[in-house]
Amino acid sequence: MSEDREGPAALPVTLAEKIEYLLERAIPPSEERPSDRQVADSINEDAGTTIISHVTFGKLRKGQQLATSDDRLDAISDYFGVNRRFLKTNHQDAVRDIAEQLDFLASVGSGDITGTAGRGADLGGLSPDLLAYVNNIIRDVQENGIPGSDDLLRGGG
């Protein structure tokens, strides 16, 4: 993936990278990663018609097909529950915002974040900057521990 983002995870740039990114982060950890056929079948079932084949989805995911119709991009976005701009080219701001939201949700799902408080504390109310800030704090704590925790363990304060 492209190194267009601060921190350990890079923002996806190509359509294939974006699909892989969604498969890695938008599917809850408790669920098994779906196959190309499962994704295509679900998309087609929701649409009530054939929008995409598992072969085409697989080619998009592997980067063997670089572009597809807006209808397919919309259907794939709907499947993953993300804004349609995420999969469309030249929308790096949308990619960054959605990536931060997915990182935030992953932190909530893994127990790193157990709740939020205050005004605008629902996911829709958190700004991309605040999500980025929270995600950076989580990464820092995961890598370095809680600042001052050694003092607390020694009885200091």
Rank of each mutant, 00 (worst) to 15 (best):
E3L: 11
D4Q: 12
E45F: 13
Q38D: 12
A99M: 10
N144A: 14
L15C: 06
D93L: 13
Q92D: 15
A40S: 13
A94S: 13
R96W: 15
E32Q: 10
A117F: 04
S42G: 07
A16M: 09
D70Q: 10
D41E: 15
E17G: 13
L131Y: 04
R96M: 13
H54C: 12
F104L: 15
A94M: 08
I27A: 06
V55R: 06
N44I: 01
G111C: 03
T89K: 13
P128D: 02
G157S: 15
R96G: 05
E24N: 12
N83T: 06
G145Y: 02
I51P: 07
I113V: 02
Q92M: 15
L126T: 02
Y21T: 06
N135L: 04
Y79T: 02
I76M: 09
T116Y: 06
L22M: 07
N144K: 11
I51S: 11
G156V: 06
A47G: 06
D70K: 10
G125L: 01
D129L: 09
A132S: 04
N135F: 01
P128R: 02
R139L: 09
A99L: 09
R154M: 14
Q92E: 15
R25F: 08
D122C: 01
D103Y: 03
R154S: 15
S35R: 01
E31P: 04
G120C: 00
I76G: 14
A75T: 05
N83P: 09
N44E: 08
R139W: 07
V55F: 14
K62E: 14
R37T: 09
T56V: 13
R25W: 08
Y133P: 01
E100R: 13
Q38W: 01
E6Y: 12
A132L: 03
L131K: 05
F104N: 12
Y79W: 04
